[in-house]
């Protein structure tokens, strides 16, 4: 599977601390890619570099063969949206205002609320299930509600590529599955989804393509059924497990054996 979004020999670092060296990765188009790995393995850093928030110190992150940082900001922001972690809304902001901010790359100096903007915001709020919260202030919402509003904002950007850093954070289990199903539906509509996910079983159930990382390296990449086995989980997470087919979907499901190496 080839894609328009690629990493080539990319070295990612914060100051002197190298997170990933000479990373190569292809993101398949029109697929749901899940990046999994232990804490601090460089998955968020990788996603941030795709989203232009971190420039590789060497190598390239490219879209259509051109470095993502060479595009005009609004042009590339109409192609890909990014949901970072740990977001805080400005004081006093109501939900519909925040969702509307996702339309920024589509707006011009004179046109800040076109019919398209209105339609996209309404659709995004419906998809994320926050329509009823439209006039509520962000500071008065629960963590899960806020997370869904931020997701609505990213959806309102209406981009073919959607990058999400742990989008299920703060969500209860029902909303987690609802969100993942929504992402799968968006994939079915032709969008490309790249998400950092914590739960490997959820990743196997919903994603077409899994990128397993450890210490800044890509250990394996491919379809869940092809790459996820006990050896991989041991290598990536240091966790002993057995793999059994998910009784509902048949996708790989990990069940820890009870030996939790320290």
């Amino acid at each position: 599977m080839k894609g328009r979004l690629t990493a080539r020999d990319a070295t990612l670092r914060y100051g002197d601390r190298v997170v990933s060296a000479d990373l190569d990765l292809d993101v398949p188009d029109g697929a749901f890619t899940a990046i999994v790995g232990a804490n601090a393995c460089g998955k968020s850093t990788l996603l941030r570099s795709f989203a232009r928030l971190l420039a590789p110190s060497s190598g390239h992150i490219a879209f259509d063969g051109r470095d993502v940082r060479d595009y005009r900001p609004k042009t590339i922001a109409r192609e890909m949206a990014f949901l970072p972690q740990g977001l805080v809304a400005p004081e006093n902001m109501v939900v519909r205002q925040l969702v509307a901010r996702g339309r920024y790359p589509h707006q011009t100096l004179l046109s800040t609320w076109s019919a398209d903007d209105e339609r996209a915001v309404t659709a995004a709020m419906t998809a994320a299930g926050v329509t009823d919260l439209a006039e509520r202030r962000m500071e008065n919402l629960s963590g899960g509600q806020r997370q869904r509003v931020w997701i609505a904002m990213v959806l309102a950007q209406e981009t073919p590529y959607l990058l999400l850093d742990e989008p299920t954070t703060f969500l209860d289990i029902t909303h987690q599955y609802q969100l993942l199903a929504l992402l799968a539906r968006l994939r079915d509509d032709g969008r490309t989804i790249i998400a950092v996910l914590h739960d490997v079983n959820q990743a196997c159930r919903f994603a077409d393509h899994i990128v397993a990382m450890r210490d800044g390296r890509v250990v394996a990449a491919g379809a869940p059924a092809d790459i996820v086995d006990a050896a991989l989980i041991k290598e990536v997470f240091d966790l002993s497990c057995v793999i059994t087919p998910d009784p509902v979907t048949g996708t790989p499901m990990i069940v820890p054996t009870g030996e939790y190496a320290g």
């Binding site: 941030r48 989203a51 590339i76 922001a77 109409r78 949206a81 970072p84 920024y104």
Partner: peptide
């Protein structure tokens, strides 16, 4: 207005 959402969101949504 966009910058008030924080650097990450502002940059990712197309603010230079």
């Amino acid at each position: 207005r966009q910058a008030a959402l924080g650097d990450d969101v502002a940059a990712a949504s197309g603010l230079g």
